[in-house]
C-alpha cells in the first residue's frame, strides 16, 4: 500500500492543519517520512499507529518543537517554526509524558500553566475549578503532583492543556492509562469541544478510539499509510464491506462459492473476495453490504440454497488496524527489497 496524500476537506472547509511531504530525520533514521494531509477546522483527527511509528514526532513537527528535515507544515495558516505569541495562545498541547512539576500541588500546577498562557487572576479561578471537576481531581487539588497516580497525572495534564480554552488541540495519547469510564468521558468532552468549533489532533494506541474520530490516519514506520473515515477504514482494510453467510449444508466450492463471483457488488479484483471460513461458513467482500444483502438473499432463495444466517460483518477496529498495518508493512518490505 503506497503512502498517499489524503485530502479530507470539503471544498468550503477551512484547513487548520496542513502537511505536505513532512519529513523528520534523526541521523540516518526517518522518524516521519513524506507525510501529507489536510485537516479541516472543527474535526477530530485520530492519529493511530503502533509504538514508535512516528506519531509523537509528527505532533512535535506540527507544534514547532522540532524543525522539519524536509517538507512543509502549516498550522492555523502559519509554519510552526514561525508561530507568533498570539497564535500560540490558540493552541493547546498535551505531551505524551507527564510534564508538570512533582513538587507543586495539582492546583499550583494548573495555575502555573494557566499563567503561562497569560490568563488573568480573576477569570482563571472559575475556569480551573470547572476543569478539575471535569477531570475528577477537585478533591485532590491540594495533593502534590508526585503523590498522585499515573492516571491522575494524565488527567491533570489534560486539564492543564484545556486551561486556556484553545481552538486547536494537539493531544498526544490523552487517554493512556485512563480507566474506560473516564476515557469515554474524555471522548465525550472532545466531541463537545468539536461541537463548539475546536479542531482536535489526537494520537492514540487504543485503536477502538478511532470510532470517535471524524478521520483517522494510520501511521507505521514513520509513514502515513492512509487517512480515512472510521467506516472507510474498514473498507480500505478488507477491500470492501464483509458479508458472513452460514449455510445449512457444508460449504461447496462449486455450488455455493463459485456462483457468487457472478455478482457485480462482489469485489472480484481481490484474491479472496469469496472465501470459505468454516464447514458451513463463508465470507464475501462486497462494495456495499446494505445493497448486497437483499440481492444475495433473493439469489439463495431462487437457487434453493438453505442458509441459517446472512449478515454484514463489522470487524473490530483492532482487526482493521492489524490488517492495514500488516499489509502496509509487507508492501514497504517488498518495496525495500526491490530497491535493494
Amino acid at each position: 500500500m503506497a503512502t498517499e496524500r489524503s485530502d479530507v476537506r470539503s471544498s468550503s472547509a477551512e484547513i487548520d492543519i496542513h502537511a505536505a511531504k513532512l519529513t523528520k530525520q534523526f541521523g540516518d533514521q526517518y522518524a516521519v517520512k513524506d507525510v501529507s494531509f489536510d485537516i479541516p477546522r472543527g474535526k477530530i483527527f485520530g492519529f493511530i499507529g503502533p509504538s514508535g511509528s512516528g506519531k509523537t514526532t509528527a505532533v512535535r513537527l506540527l507544534t514547532g518543537i522540532y524543525p522539519p528535515t524536509a517538507g512543509t507544515a502549516r498550522v492555523l495558516g502559519v509554519e510552526p517554526m514561525n508561530f507568533t505569541q498570539h497564535l500560540r495562545e490558540e493552541i493547546g498541547y498535551m505531551p505524551q509524558l507527564f510534564a508538570l512539576y512533582p513538587d507543586l500541588t495539582v492546583w499550583e500546577n494548573l495555575n502555573f500553566v494557566a499563567s503561562l498562557y497569560g490568563m488573568n487572576f480573576v477569570t482563571r479561578r472559575k475556569r480551573l475549578r470547572e476543569l478539575l471537576e471535569f477531570v475528577e481531581l477537585d478533591k485532590d487539588r491540594r495533593k502534590l503532583a508526585r503523590s498522585i497516580s499515573g492516571g491522575m497525572q494524565r488527567r491533570l495534564t489534560l486539564a492543564a492543556t484545556l486551561a486556556h480554552d484553545p481552538r486547536l488541540l494537539f493531544l498526544d495519547e490523552p487517554t493512556a492509562g485512563i480507566d474506560p469510564v473516564l476515557r469515554r468521558k474524555f471522548w465525550d468532552h472532545f466531541k463537545t469541544l468539536q461541537d463548539s468549533g475546536r479542531t482536535l489532533f489526537v494520537t492514540t494506541q487504543y485503536v477502538g478510539e478511532a470510532a470517535y474520530c471524524d478521520y483517522v490516519g494510520v501511521m507505521t514506520r514513520g509513514q502515513l499509510v492512509l487517512v480515512e473515515t472510521p467506516q472507510g477504514l474498514r473498507k480500505r482494510a478488507y477491500g470492501g464491506e464483509l458479508v458472513d453467510i452460514v449455510f445449512k449444508d457444508s460449504v461447496s466450492e462449486r455450488r455455493h462459492l463459485q456462483p457468487l463471483q457472478q455478482f457485480d457488488f462482489v469485489q472480484k479484483q481481490l484474491p479472496r473476495a469469496v472465501q470459505r471460513t468454516g464447514r458451513h461458513n463463508a465470507r464475501i467482500v462486497v462494495d456495499d453490504a446494505g445493497a448486497a444483502l437483499p440481492a444475495l438473499m433473493k439469489w439463495f432463495g431462487d437457487q434453493e440454497i438453505e442458509i441459517e444466517n446472512i449478515e454484514e460483518h463489522v470487524p473490530p477496529f483492532d482487526d482493521v488496524f492489524v490488517e492495514i498495518v500488516s499489509k502496509a508493512e509487507a508492501e514497504m518490505d517488498a518495496a525495500e527489497a526491490n530497491h535493494g
Binding site: 512535535r60 507544534t63 518543537i65 505569541q85 505531551p95 508538570l100 512539576y101
Partner: peptide, 14 residues
C-alpha cells in the same frame, strides 16, 4: 528533565 521546556516551546511564553 521534567519535559516542561516542551510545554514552553508550544506556549506563548518568551
Amino acid at each position: 528533565q521534567l519535559g516542561t521546556v516542551e510545554l514552553f516551546r508550544v506556549s506563548p511564553i518568551s
